[in-house]
Amino acid sequence: MSNILIVIHVTDNEVKKSVFSAAAFAKQAAAFAGGSYSLLAIGSDLSGATAKLATAGAAKVYTAQAPDLGNALAERLAPIIEQVLLAGSFKMVVSPASSVAKDVMPRLAARIGAGMASEVVGLSFDAGRFTYLRPMYAGNVNGAVQIDTPIEVVTIRPTEFEALAPSGTSPVETVAVPAPEPVAAKIEYLGFEKAVSTRPDLAEAAIVVSGGRGMKAKENFVILEELADLLGAAVGASRAAVDSGFIHNDFQVGQTGKIVAPNLYIACGISGALQHVAGMKSSRVVVAINKDEEAPIFQIADYGLVADLFKAVPELTAAVRALKG
């Protein structure tokens, strides 16, 4: 029996699609190893999220609620996850690779003496063991890794696992939240500054319009924003654009930034550095607009337009507007 525990942190009662991607991964893992999967949700208030979480096909949904858990401090979350893990007979604990999971899961792994595989994109099972596929070297190499500890800690890239359709109703169990450990007193949560954006979440958007060094200045991103708003798209950027100060780090798409896989990815003035491509290559359709016809982005784009983006993007916006009537 190999049971799997999915861990997610919930803010504002919002249940992200990535939960159902993690469920798809856990379902596969549980089927391979002959077990079931459960889900642990942690947050300050889960009242509006529990019903939806109960449709992820889990054998059980555990909820851990306390006022301070909304802050998602690793020092606080890791002991809670450990408690649920050890109380059940779990062989694997998995979380979608959000910034909370990236922060907490390695702390948890060290806590329970477990090995961990980060940002897994594929799973196989042979002779009783899991093998995880994970991108390394800025996406230039995939490593197949095995973990030699009784509990295996995993984060997955939700873009690589097709979300499970919601169905059924899992039983819900409330977890007794342990008191904070002494180390939690050494860190104080001061607040959250939300990136000002009325657009969809970059990691989950169906369409992404991205700009690179070719945007030349911060002010020029407005032409991408117009197109994005018309398409209901998120705005992204290459690391070069972030480094040049055109846009906040939160919008960076790439191996060390956000991993996206929208239906349509429109790359404007992006040369196509490997670092960037590693973060968007699973997109279904890629459009590249760049005035340099030698730009490597054209090697991976389904549709390439060699043009000055300052002319082409407004034209595209006008054409889409006309199309939408």
Partner: peptide, 22 residues
């Protein structure tokens, strides 16, 4: 605790077509 048992080259996207206008 974690062993890499093999390395593989990831699947590459193929270049599509160039279009001449918006």
């Amino acid at each position: 605790k974690v062993r890499t048992v093999r390395f593989t080259a990831p699947a590459q996207r193929k270049a599509g077509v160039k279009v001449d206008s918006v």
